[in-house]
Amino acid sequence: MSYAEKMADIAAMLAADGYRLAVEENGHRVALTVSPGPDACEDCLVPKDVFRGIAAHHLGVDGGLIDVTYPVDLPGYAGGSH
């Protein structure tokens, strides 16, 4: 099962708050990028370290090997709706 498949439930959870999840394997590391859709709830994301923990559990890898990018980290991000 690919990392993207393992994160499918989490992607669905994020989609419920209006976010998309991109999963990229970079050698032994995993990059997870959470980006907002047009109706994303800005205050609805969990803290990044909590998200990393959830991802680590689902992927079966140490959280230190997961690079998380949140909307606030994305270039040009100006906030979302509530």
Binding site: V50, I54, H57, G63
Partner: peptide, 9 residues
């Protein structure tokens, strides 16, 4: 056990 920050302890 699962550490919510992603570290196994």
């Amino acid at each position: 056990i699962l550490d919510p920050t992603g570290t196994v302890t």
